[in-house]
Design a protein around this nucleic acid. Structure first.
Lengths: 236, 236
DNA sequence: TGTACATCAGTGAACGCGCGTTCACTGATGTAC
DNA sequence: TGTACATCAGTGAACGCGCGTTCACTGATGTAC
């Protein structure tokens, strides 16, 4: 019967996500290297070998968590962007930047999973690439929209992109940036780097005894500065 | 006898640094969590318990490696700075930024140790703080020197530091930045963050399929942009 | 609708491994008289 | 200079632990006739 077959599958899907949830919690406590199939099984009241019905190995579970984390950031970013009027490019930019920081603070271990030191010996399979690109797509869309509206004019006087970058800019332009100049594409990448760099510094403890009063305000300052560099302005 | 006593101590000091060297190598292969006293002992042809004559626990060895890594970056940065004429502030800035990237590429696992995801359950003891501050001291000195020479004039139009930052700026000014304004101090921190953010992105694989042609040139562009933001100019 | 068979979920024992740390010990190296 | 003693380096066995993964198995759930 079709209904009962999906019943079994529903239970299966539920257990898979329960396993991932427990694994995520353990990640938070023990860190990436502390993720253990046995511990997950224990917490679910199963015998350790039962996990193998759902994930063929520890690495596959880790991969699933990485993809989930990328997707969670991606979803947060898309949602933040979608909540703004399309033509408020600066607002969209700020909202997107803030959403990354907010998500990271709420899910530090998952953030570390995707932006911390790579797990040695673990090679991210191709599956992660799609999920990993979601935030970049949103960033690029904001800049594209702003550019089309004539509201993107990078500060004059900044150094031009090196010639070598042209070869990298090509595929990026094709995939994401439509008509933006090489200079702007490189600037966009740098802003993106600066935003994540900021979040990582805060999360990994670099701002301890350095910025203590209001890190959200400091982060906003960084995001606003980057927007200024890109010459990003709201409609008006 | 004094000479023979130092002979024993010399052997001891040598073994300590041999242990650290082996540990560093293992870190490179296995990552932070793969560092094991037993493996270190094995590679040195000792029995595992012998290590305890030199390090009271695994965490102490880890701490020693962290301090060494901070000191290595610090030394690289200081050396790069010292090689430039004092009044070439922009050159000093670029040299210092490049030295960080160069060191990181040459010692990826040690870089990950100090700038990657924090090791869960491990709390860095106070001893690391001094070593961790060395690079910041050099950064600050360049800006201070430039300011005193009247060669630091931040770009107009950038957002001002949030009011909340004043309380953080105070101690930083006292310790590092002498007379720089709050705005400039925050900008300095952001530049510092951007530089490390760049290095981390490159090292942790975020630029895979994004910047492939000439990452050194792209990094230079980032460093130059940050210098421009700070309004840092060479004497002339 | 009822029965025979196939699929799937979960068990429990086992393999073989590595880990940090403690402890009582043997020798060698240094120190004091 | 020679001897008695104290310090130190390194050994080897052990404790108690956790890990990933495999495998033959029992029952339960679903499927086909």
């Amino acid at each position: 019967m079709n209904a009962s077959r999906t019943a079994r599958e529903r239970v299966r899907a539920e257990l898979i996500s329960e396993i991932k949830e427990v694994a995520r919690r353990q990640l938070a406590i023990e860190g990436t290297s502390g993720l253990s199939l046995r511990a997950v099984a224990r917490e679910l009241g199963m015998v350790s070998s039962a996990i193998y019905r759902y994930f063929p190995s520890r690495d596959e579970l880790l991969t699933a968590l990485i993809i989930e984390a990328f997707n969670a950031v991606g979803a947060a970013v898309e949602e933040a962007d979608a909540a703004c009027p399309r033509d408020r490019h600066l607002d969209r930019w700020m909202a997107v930047c803030r959403s990354i920081r907010t998500w990271a603070l709420a899910h530090p271990s998952e953030y570390a999973l995707i932006h911390g030191s790579p797990v040695p010996g673990y090679v991210a399979p191709q599956d992660t690439a799609v999920a990993a690109a979601r935030d970049g797509i949103v960033f690029a869309a904001i800049l594209r929209d702003a550019d089309e509206a004539g509201r993107l004019s990078p500060l004059p006087g900044l150094p031009p992109a090196p010639e070598s970058f042209a070869a990298d800019a090509g595929p990026l332009r094709e995939a994401l940036f439509s008509t933006l100049s090489d200079d702007l594409i490189l600037r966009a990448l740098e802003s993106w780097t600066a935003i994540y760099g900021s979040v990582s510094f805060e999360l990994f403890g670099m701002y301890k005894n350095v910025i203590e009063q209001d890190r959200a305000a400091a982060f906003d300052h960084t995001a606003a500065t980057q927007a200024h560099l890109l010459g990003l302005t709201a409609a008006g």
